[in-house]
């Protein structure tokens, strides 16, 4: 790979993708609150970045109610996992070349 993934490159989105790809492929994903604490983003900021990743089909979002509370869960798609791995390889190649 000779170019960065423009979508994943942004720091908050990089952290979101890192967190989601750290889970096994059959995992249910991470909820919004947990992602917020892992990325250090605000609600609005995180929501905007998740929308961006959803439009790229890198993540899938599901909403459900747990008791009376709404719960948003984000899961990485196979395309997103592959794109993240390519981006990490790209970053490693820069370090190796430098």
């Amino acid at each position: 790979m000779d170019a960065a993934d423009e979508i994943i490159h942004q720091p908050v989105r990089l952290r979101i993708m890192a967190a989601l790809t750290a889970l096994p492929a059959d995992d249910e994903g991470l909820d919004f609150v947990r992602l917020k604490s892992l990325t250090g983003a605000t609600d609005g900021n995180l929501g905007a970045h998740i929308d961006h990743l959803t439009r790229a089909a890198y993540v899938e979002v599901s909403k459900a109610f747990v008791g009376r509370r709404p719960r948003t869960t984000v899961k990485v798609s196979p395309e997103g996992r592959a794109a993240f791995q390519r981006h990490v390889l790209f970053l490693k190649s820069i370090i190796a070349a430098g």
Binding site: A3, A18, A22, V88, I95, G98
Partner: peptide, 27 residues
């Protein structure tokens, strides 16, 4: 977009740190 080795290294460190936190949280 140009990324120098220092930036790439910082990004990978960030990735490693998030991955470690996710794994610890699962444990």
């Amino acid at each position: 977009m140009t990324i120098d080795p220092q930036q790439a290294s910082a990004m990978l460190a960030d990735v490693d740190s998030v991955v470690a936190r996710v794994k610890q949280s699962r444990i």
